[in-house]
Design a protein around this nucleic acid. Structure first.
Lengths: 182, 182
DNA sequence: CTATATTTAATACGATTGTATTAAAAAGAT
DNA sequence: ATCTTTTTAATACAATCGTATTAAATATAG
């Protein structure tokens, strides 16, 4: 399904196309997913699980706070084909379900950003004049903006450029004695 | 067409739905737009024209640089129902045509941001240590990130919150003696 | 091996899609 | 008022959609 969406967008994500891409018959696919919506939601959940798993693996490494956060953000902003595909598929999904009644999507990413900022604060890594709430919102928006641009304008938005912008931003909200990570 | 897309997303943007919403017959609509793609592209171009017009009107006002830029950014980030609809429709369009061969979308917004930053630089409003290129990229990403969040998470992303984040960011890249505008 | 359960395949159905065709209606020009 | 052009309406068609049904193939259990 991800491959189909990456190639033809949500418009091409028909049950038949997905079955064909998976090498299954229509009836076979239907045996596992009773409806198209069920299939879409499963596929969407899988994207979330994968990204969550990668980020949690980073959390387990017990890195210095700022380095940990840098690495985490680089798992959200697409810097390789895998994460780029995930983000594009995710965006298609969110927009698709945005206009469907009865399905409410909350990825919980904002809560995650609040946690990250709290870690920086607890470790006394933040400049003391920063407004935590607003800075959380700003970082979140910056990351998602970079992610969108990485998908839609990949020729300009190289991995290095993304890293530079993120490093610039983190340096701005963190104290000067923080170790560089990029 | 915008109304249809806002209600049902791109999936509902069928020729019949659009004709019905416009109070036209199928044949009538077809008389003006020979194909669905033609209709989509026209509608997309109209979104671009409207936004461009609003921004150019601000440019004509001869405001102080920083205030002018603030106002312009607030025309891009959706802060009311009109701009919110435009941005949502635009995003649907871009994603839709992303996966269509032969149609290349370049909204020229990045070039616009470069111009804005250049104005700030020429007016000597920027802190001297800022890297123009990276800061342009950062501002652009921040604005689009805020825009996405304004659409997808409107309950948290109020107009005031958007203004606060933008003001915070502008204050950070501009010199302290710049007049406040929010 | 046999019997049961699971999985796959093939086909069908009604609805909807983009597009095309044709003629009637309305508007405008002379 | 008549003629020409423009606009609208209605219908048709092939393709594709999500979903449903039915039976064959395969796997599993006793």
């Amino acid at each position: 399904m991800w491959r189909v969406i990456l190639k033809d967008g949500m418009k091409g994500a028909t049950v038949r196309n997905i079955a064909k891409e998976a090498g299954l018959s229509l009836g076979s696919l239907r045996h596992y997913f009773k409806s198209q919506e069920e299939l879409l939601l499963f596929s969407m959940e899988l994207v979330k699980e994968r990204a969550t798993e990668r980020i949690q693996n980073i959390a387990l490494k017990n890195l210095p706070p700022k380095e940990m956060i840098s690495k985490m953000l680089l798992e959200i902003v697409p810097t390789n084909e895998t994460t780029k595909a995930e983000m594009e598929v995710w965006l298609e999904f969110v927009l698709y379900f945005q206009n469907k009644q009865g399905v409410k999507i909350d990825d919980g990413v904002f809560q995650g950003f609040k946690k990250l900022m709290d870690i920086l604060k607890q470790g006394n890594f933040l400049k003391k004049e920063v407004n935590i709430d607003l800075e959380t919102e700003r970082l979140y928006a910056l990351v998602d903006g970079l992610a969108i641009h990485a998908i839609l304008q990949p020729e300009r938005m190289t991995k290095e450029r993304i890293e530079h912008v993120l490093a610039l931003h983190l340096d701005e909200i963190c104290k000067g004695d923080c170790p560089q990570q990029f």
